[in-house]
Computed example of a mutant assay.
Amino acid sequence: MANKDLKNRIPIGSAVNKTLYEELKNYSKETGIPISKLLDKSILLFLKSTKK
């Protein structure tokens, strides 16, 4: 069941490449940008790139 405290977000679970995850985690730490926000941006860019 989804966390009831989340109003505008939904928790997801997925498995990713270990190296990519480490790079993402390091980037998040260096920039102070939360991983969830980086994933939002990545998904948005992917969806925009696949629209015809």
Rank of each mutant, 00 (worst) to 15 (best):
L24D: 08
K18Y: 14
D40Y: 06
G13F: 12
V16Q: 09
K25Y: 15
S14N: 06
A2H: 13
I12S: 03
P34H: 01
L24W: 08
P34I: 02
F46A: 05
I43K: 09
L38F: 03
E22Y: 10
K25R: 02
L47C: 03
K7D: 15
P11I: 00
N3T: 00
I33Q: 07
M1L: 14
L6E: 13
S28A: 06
I35S: 00
K51H: 13
A2W: 13
F46P: 00
S36D: 10
I33V: 09
S49F: 13
N3E: 14
K52Q: 15
L20C: 06
E23D: 14
N26Q: 05
T50M: 11
T31E: 13
L47S: 13
K4I: 09
L20Q: 12
L38M: 07
N3W: 15
N17W: 02
I35V: 04
R9I: 06
S36K: 03
G13V: 07
D5W: 09
D5H: 11
K7F: 11
K25T: 06
Y21S: 02
L45H: 04
L39G: 01
T31K: 01
N17Q: 06
T31V: 04
E22D: 15
P34R: 00
S36I: 06
S42V: 01
S14P: 02
L39F: 01
K29W: 14
K37F: 04
Y21T: 09
K41G: 10
K37V: 10
I10N: 10
T31M: 09
A15G: 08
S14C: 05
T19I: 12
P34S: 02
K37R: 08
F46H: 05
K52T: 09
V16E: 07
T31C: 07
S28D: 12
K29P: 04
N26E: 15
S36V: 08
K7R: 10
S49V: 04
Y27G: 01
K29A: 04
I43G: 02
K29M: 07
P34Q: 00
K37S: 05
L39H: 02
E22T: 05
I12Q: 00
D40S: 00
M1I: 04
K4H: 15
L39I: 04
N3A: 12
P34V: 06
K25M: 13
L45M: 11
S49H: 00
G32A: 02
A2R: 04
I33W: 04
K18L: 10
L20G: 12
G13R: 01
S49A: 12
I35L: 03
E23I: 00
L20P: 04
G32Q: 09
M1K: 05
T50V: 11
G13Y: 05
I10F: 13
S42Q: 02
L20Y: 13
K48C: 14
E22S: 13
I43L: 09
D40W: 02
E23G: 07
N26R: 07
K51V: 13
A15V: 08
